[in-house]
C-alpha cells in the first residue's frame, strides 16, 4: 500500500511500466511484453475521493469496510504461503491470489475511508482489532495446503456470488470495484476447485487431508450469509446485497464441485461468528500485529 504522504494526484506507482522489458527489437512480438492495462486502480478511487467526485454514505462506507477487511485479512494469510507452497508454481499461484485480494482490499478501504477522511493505510494499519469487520473465516489459520484450499474454496465461491451481484449496485464505485474483482475471483474459484478435485481424488492421504480441511473451515461458512440491519438497509436501497440471498447459489455450485470430488458437504456445527461487529477469534490479533508493526514503528514510511 502507498503511504498517505505519497497521495498526490499524479501518483502512478513507481514508474511507467508500458515499455517492453526487452527494450529494443520486435517487442510487440515478445512474450515478455508488459502493459499496464487500463483497469480500475485503487489510486483512481483515491483520486475521485480526494477531488470530491465520490463520497460514500456512512452505511456504504461501513459496508465497504467489511468487504475490504475480508480481503485484507485473507491477503495477509495467503501471503505467508510464498516460499512455503508444495511447488514454486503454487507459491506464485497463491501469491497472485493474495495480490488480487489485496487489490480489492485497497479499493474498498480507499473508498470507505472517503467517508471519514482516512486513507487506505490509516484503515489498514492504524485500526485496532475490535475495529476490524472481517468475518471469522478469513482469519482462520492456513493449516496445511488442503486447509488453505478448503478456505479458498469457500471464500472464492462466496465472493464470486457477492461481486457478481454487486456489479448491479446503485453505488457506482461499489459496482466498479466489484466488476474488476469478479473476474479475478472467478479464477480463484477455478484454482480452488481444481485442487479440491485433485486432492480428493488423489491418494488416500490427500483425500483424508482434503476432507479434514473442509471440516475445519465449514463452521465459518454460516457467518458469511447472515443479514443484519446494515445489509438490509443497503439492500433496500439497491446499494448492497443481502448475504442470505447468496446462499442458494453458493450451496448449489460448491455442492456440484464436492459431488464431482466425491466428497460430502461437511455437517459441522456453526461457529458463533461476530466478526461484522468487531468480535474476533484469537487469531486476528496476531495477524494484525505482524501486518501493522512496520507502519506503526515507522509511521509514514515509504519506499
Amino acid at each position: 500500500m502507498t503511504t498517505p504522504e505519497t497521495h498526490t494526484a499524479e501518483t502512478t506507482g513507481h514508474g511507467d511500466i508500458s515499455v517492453g522489458v526487452a527494450g529494443s527489437g520486435d517487442s510487440s512480438a515478445s512474450a515478455t511484453r508488459i502493459t499496464p492495462g487500463n483497469a480500475l486502480r485503487p489510486e483512481d478511487i483515491a483520486l475521485e475521493v480526494r477531488t470530491g467526485l465520490v463520497k460514500p454514505s456512512e452505511d456504504v462506507a461501513e459496508y465497504a469496510l467489511r468487504l475490504g477487511d475480508d480481503a485484507l485479512i485473507l491477503a495477509q494469510r495467503l501471503g505467508r504461503w510464498i516460499s512455503r507452497a508444495p511447488e514454486l508454481e503454487e507459491d506464485v499461484a497463491l501469491g497472485n491470489i493474495a495480490l488480487d485480494q489485496l487489490g480489492h482490499a485497497r479499493s474498498f478501504l480507499t473508498y470507505a475511508g472517503g467517508a471519514w477522511e482516512k486513507s487506505e493505510d490509516d484503515l489498514a494499519y492504524f485500526r485496532r482489532e475490535h475495529e476490524f469487520r472481517s468475518a471469522h473465516l478469513f482469519e482462520q489459520p492456513n493449516g496445511d495446503f488442503a486447509v488453505t484450499i478448503a478456505r479458498q474454496f469457500v471464500v472464492s465461491y462466496y465472493q464470486f456470488e457477492l461481486y457478481r451481484r454487486l456489479t448491479q449496485s446503485t453505488d457506482a464505485t461499489l459496482a466498479a470495484i466489484a466488476a474488476k474483482a469478479v473476474k479475478e475471483v472467478d479464477y480463484h474459484r477455478d484454482h480452488s476447485a481444481q485442487w479440491i478435485l485433485r486432492l480428493a481424488l488423489g491418494t488416500k492421504e490427500s483425500r483424508a487431508r482434503m476432507t479434514h480441511g473442509l471440516k475445519l473451515v465449514w463452521p465459518y461458512v454460516g457467518e458469511l450469509f447472515v443479514d443484519d440491519e446494515l445489509t438490509t438497509r443497503l439492500a433496500g436501497a439497491g446499494a448492497a446485497v443481502e448475504p442470505s440471498s447468496l446462499k442458494a447459489d453458493f450451496d448449489r455450485l460448491t455442492g456440484e464441485v464436492l459431488a464431482e470430488a466425491e466428497l460430502e458437504v461437511p455437517q459441522t456445527p456453526v461457529a458463533p461468528g461476530g466478526g461484522r461487529r468487531g468480535k474476533h477469534s484469537e487469531h486476528l490479533g496476531y495477524i494484525l500485529a505482524e501486518m501493522q508493526v512496520l507502519a506503526r514503528e515507522h509511521p509514514g514510511a515509504s519506499w
Binding site: R84, A85, P86, E87, D144, F145, A146, R198, L199, G202, T203, K204, E205, S206, R209
Partner: peptide, 14 residues
C-alpha cells in the same frame, strides 16, 4: 518440500 501434498494416482510414488 515440507508440507507437500501428495497428488496423483494412488499407485504413484509419493
Amino acid at each position: 518440500r515440507p508440507g507437500t501434498p501428495v497428488v496423483g494416482a494412488p499407485q504413484e510414488s509419493t
